[in-house]
């Protein structure tokens, strides 16, 4: 299984970024091989539709699961269509949240906030 997490820095001990769409990097963690990979978020500086573009990067990275502080409803629609499960983080660092997830301690996200864009 592949887990994706928005992070502030390119290390496993990095803090989970409070924004999904505008996070600087995404961490991908493979639960079988225990390998990690970091990619820059292509939507970090997008003018609009950042959540959609960021979600696309998660889909393209072939993640099965996303651990995040929050997510917008457009991104949620992408995850739903791509059958990616979204879980809410409870700890500060990416590593801590991976451990929590593997212990089955994280709950699925039920609330997705409305978009901030397109309301000009």
């Amino acid at each position: 299984m592949k887990i994706a997490i928005p992070v502030n820095e390119m290390r496993v001990e990095a803090e989970v970024c409070v924004s999904f769409g505008r996070a600087p990097y995404f961490l991908f963690y493979d639960t079988e091989s225990r390998e990690t990979e970091f990619i820059p978020n292509p939507a970090a500086a997008a003018q609009g539709g950042a959540g959609i573009k960021a979600a696309q990067a998660i889909v393209d990275g072939a993640a099965n699961v996303l651990l995040t502080v929050r997510s917008g409803e457009n991104a949620a629609e992408v995850f739903h269509a791509a059958k990616i499960m979204v879980y809410k983080t409870t700890k500060v660092t990416a590593k801590e949240n991976i451990d929590e997830f593997e212990k089955g301690q994280l709950a699925q996200m039920t609330h997705f906030h409305a978009g901030f864009h397109g309301k000009i």
Binding site: A43, A46, Q47, G48, G49, A50, I52, K53, A55, Q56, V59, N74, E77, V78, A81, A82, G115, H117, G118
Partner: peptide
């Protein structure tokens, strides 16, 4: 799409109409 109003899921684009 410079507005990121499209995404590609399972090889098919989906449109976000508000974006």
């Amino acid at each position: 799409c410079r507005f990121n109003a499209l995404s590609l899921i399972k090889n098919k684009p989906i449109v976000f109409q508000e974006v």
